[in-house]
């Protein structure tokens, strides 16, 4: 019985990376109106997927990242597939470099995140500009980039607390 309980608990904890990302997706959709600000919010889902792709890539699979992006697309009203593309790209960048980041300090991780959003968000902008066949304004993109960069330490701290508390090495997929 207790073995079964332990196993169930482990299964649920193994879902934490996905669940925490979903929670951040919902949070990023919340109508937080900052005064004197356009309605651009930071890319929370991107932060979560990037974090988990480095630290628990076994629990945050590429398909998981894709599904989270798809949900965000369906809920945010943008073209479907755009966020899925972003998150799959971020996941791939995270996983491919994870050996470099795993032992390094937070500052290195932060710089890597800056690089990833610096690559991924402009790709999005280019794709959207191509789709609409006009150069879209850059200001919302820059705002989102800077906001995401500024808030990454907070999300990093929260997710690393979550990981340390609930996801020790024993929890595997």
């Amino acid at each position: 019985m207790s073995a079964l309980l332990r196993q169930t608990s482990r299964r649920i904890r193994a879902l934490l990376p996905i669940l925490s990302s979903l929670a951040l997706v919902l949070f990023s959709l919340a109508p937080v109106g900052l005064p004197h600000f356009d309605s651009v919010g930071p890319a929370f889902a991107l932060m979560a997927v990037f974090y988990w792709s480095i630290f628990r890539s076994d629990l945050m699979t590429m398909l998981g990242a894709f599904a989270i992006g798809l949900l965000l697309d369906l809920l945010s009203g943008g073209p479907i597939g755009l966020n899925a593309l972003v998150l799959v790209l971020a996941h791939e960048l995270g996983v491919s470099q994870r050996r470099v980041f795993l032992g390094s300090s937070f500052l290195v991780n932060w710089a890597a995140f800056a690089l990833v959003i610096g690559v991924v968000l402009p790709i999005c902008w280019l794709l959207m500009s191509l789709l609409h066949w006009e150069l879209l304004p850059m200001l919302p993109l820059m705002t989102q980039l800077l906001l995401s960069l500024a808030l990454y330490p907070v999300i990093y701290w929260m997710l690393s607390r979550l990981e340390r508390r609930w996801l020790r090495a024993s929890v595997t997929a």
Partner: peptide, 15 residues
Amino acid sequence: RVIADGGGSFVRTAL
């Protein structure tokens, strides 16, 4: 009541 907004930099919508 507005329960969600687009949030991204490519859409301006509200739910």
